[in-house]
Write a protein that binds this DNA or RNA. Structure first.
Lengths: 194, 194, 194, 194
DNA sequence: CATGAATGAGGGTTCATTCAT
DNA sequence: GATGAATGAACCCTCATTCAT
């Protein structure tokens, strides 16, 4: 594994375990088995590592989303649930990120801009996917406002389900992740075509 | 205003503006117009201030909830919307708290325990309020599992609506808060008794 | 009990338990059940309390020494042993003092001067007591130099026996205090008139 | 000189001059000509420096003791006096240590354990050295109890002679150190063979 | 005599970051 | 690419002491 990757992996792990605040760059370097100076050769600063991790998360997400779309017909309930499950995997893998999201983007305009970009894209994808389901007759016809609200509802649950579990003190495991899926299904079921 | 209150008000404001991480105790003291030592006369440490703010938030919430219940018949859509609106007010007033929630409770076991306690209580109140609505015929009969899911759905939206707006880069104002209400209504409308 | 005495008793106890460094004036006040301000009404500062405790120790010592001299003929082994035992009682009761002695007098010239005064007096008393024992025939005749050395030997053991036990990790109890007496006897036995 | 050594040398000097209590880490750093952060790069905290100084003192002591044993036949009066003189050198060089000994080990369990270890070892060496002197006929035969008491007497004087001088307000110089030697000789002379 | 809120200098310590090697 | 000693501003917090009441 390249040094740069070693740093990112270590940082991700430690950030998840203790929060970005309580993980120092020297600590990351030590755990990665390199010197502090070397860390700064590969990254300009701590925020730079966080940004890199976000890009990694995003890139992985795009790839995995393509895979889901290839396996499950877009616009079906199955594809939505698979997408949800996939996103939860990343939300868990990079859980420090969603956990501290607001704080992180509050102090890093660059990250903020980038996150908004990606966020808009993802919202758009959900929007489109619901419209497709409608057009293909899986869902009953919805007016624009309802469609928008439904889109946001789905996205809100997807974004914050892990946070919801964490602040509720629930362990994150197959069962609790499934409950998130169930909630999504419970939302969608009201819009199924007859 | 008592010094203790002055500290809490100042801390709340600064935490909201910059995040707990970037607000130092000396800074709070300075902005509150007192000496650093005096701050520590009233609070044992920074976490102690955060805990006090959480208790304040909770206490206010209980009082306001009683007011809502007196004005609107419990179990009605109106009472649920009013409760939602009321909670958003507090979520906004103490927005640093929900924003950094996971990080905060990760590093303060005392706060963690207390938050869970309150969280359970609030979940319970929503659960009960939905059941009442059902029993009074506002909502159609729901099996237990659906009732539980609906409860959590409502709570998740209530908890994270502000976060959702913030990470989406949307301003928090009457209009965007109303959109949250609309989302709730959109959820509930599917369960109304015809 | 008068407030002033309450302060001194509390201070003595806490100093013994934790060392002067780790006992704050606020802590003394709290434990004595008075306000910090009140403490400063009775004593000018922390050093003032320590000085007062030293004077107390000295005054008690003088009184007790008189009692010993009344019960046991001056210049006898018995009187020396009783004096030793009596001093150990005070060394224990005010053990923080001997423990931190050098540090304390290093930073308080007033205490330093006073301690030297008392110390000289006590050395003089031992000197005289040994000379008396010699003159009365309990001890064999000693030249001046030997007499001086013996005096200092006795005084050194008396001063530091408790310290010796403490740094050795030994509990201070009747048995270990007796061992100090034995040591003294072991020293004196070599000078007894046959 | 290495930075670590520079820190230790500076700390030792300042501790001796003003007592550990009145020497701050920033002060040590400043006097050593380095930054506060650098001091903490080499030592975890102030106690760590004190512990390191104790280890240094101990290590030097072991080396010097070997030298004494090589120059003077073990078990002779000369070797005992040389050992005493050597220890006084270190007691002086690290005088803050013996001065504040009880206070230091009271607040640092690690140092306490280590000191006890070393202290036991040293007591053992004196014990053995006296027994050797006995077996070689320098000293007259002693019963076990007397041998133990004599050992402790020698050790007590060795440990506290400098303290004795300091609290007595006497300067530490060749003459006053010699008086310590004389006292030791005065003790031993009573146990010489015929 | 007594209270207790208030002061503020300064203590130990941290940590993102740099830079000579 | 990599090392690791070094920087220094800043952080949280302490505590002897004061003073209005």
């Amino acid at each position: 594994m390249k040094t740069k990757d070693k740093i990112m992996e270590t940082a991700r792990r430690l950030f998840n375990e203790r929060g970005t605040r309580h993980v120092t760059t020297n600590h990351i370097a030590e755990q990665a088995g390199i010197s502090p100076g070397n860390l700064y050769y590969h990254f300009r600063n701590k925020e730079d590592i966080i940004r890199a991790l976000f890009e990694q998360l995003t890139a992985y997400g795009v790839v995995e989303y393509q895979k889901v779309l290839q396996q499950y017909p877009p616009g079906t309930l199955e594809s939505m649930e698979q997408t949800f499950a996939m996103i939860q995997t990343f939300n868990w893998r990079y859980r420090f990120f969603k956990r501290e999201l607001t704080a992180l983007i509050m102090n890093d305009p660059q990250l903020k801009a980038r996150f908004h970009e990606v966020n808009q894209m993802q919202l758009g994808m959900i929007h489109q996917s619901i419209r497709q389901a409608m057009e293909q007759g899986f869902l009953r016809p919805l007016d624009n406002k309802t469609l928008d609200l439904l889109t946001e509802e789905v996205w809100l649950v997807t974004l914050f389900w892990l946070n919801y579990l964490e602040v509720g003190g629930e362990e994150v495991n197959e069962q609790t992740l499934d409950r998130g899926s169930e909630m999504l299904r419970n939302i969608m079921v009201n819009y199924l075509a007859n």
